[in-house]
């Protein structure tokens, strides 16, 4: 119900970490695989670079290109689903991840939108994003708790 010809969802989480560290968590493929339900990005991390998200078995889940790349601030991906024909047929969506320092942490906002009304793809990812972002938050924050307890 945003615009007549757009579907979008917004997700926000606050993570107790620094913008630099959170940025690393967004682009380090091994780290991403730990919170992104096993999926792993394969990307040329620069503006205009290619981007892919691979299933654990190596098949391509999604692909596209990087449309915003401002380290520790903004990462934008032009993103198309590749594994489900109905989603693929909807074409490209845009996923924008924005980092903003707040207090002793960082506000991470993810906006995923597509230029069409009632997108099935955007509705489908709305189930996945909260899990991915909760995982990311807990991985980073628990990590900072785990370290001092090193035996």
């Amino acid at each position: 119900m945003t615009d007549h010809a757009q579907s979008s969802f917004v997700y926000v989480t606050y993570v107790k970490t620094s913008p630099d560290r959170l940025w690393e968590a967004l682009i380090d493929p091994d780290f991403v695989a730990q919170y992104w339900l096993g999926n792993r990005p394969e990307a040329d991390w620069r503006l205009g670079g290619s981007w892919k998200l691979l299933f654990p078995d190596g098949r391509i889940a999604d692909q596209g290109e990087i449309v915003a790349f401002e380290p520790a601030k903004r990462l934008g991906i032009r993103w198309r689903n590749e594994w489900k024909p109905e989603f693929n047929a909807e074409g490209y969506s845009v996923c924008m991840m924005e980092l903003e320092p707040v207090g002793d942490g960082v506000k991470l906002s993810v906006t995923h939108s597509i230029e069409r009304a009632d997108s099935q793809f955007i509705a489908a990812v709305s189930g996945g994003w909260p899990k991915i972002l909760s995982n990311l938050k807990s991985l980073i924050e628990t990590g900072t708790v785990v370290l001092p307890n090193k035996p």
Binding site: F9, V10, V12, K131
Partner: peptide, 24 residues
């Protein structure tokens, strides 16, 4: 409480339910 996110789009503010804290 981060349960709703308001996004300004043109002249209007649009409100989105944020499912992340609910998932947590």
């Amino acid at each position: 409480a981060n349960l709703v996110v308001a996004v300004r789009q043109g002249r209007e503010k649009h409100h989105f339910i944020n499912r992340v804290p609910i998932n947590e």
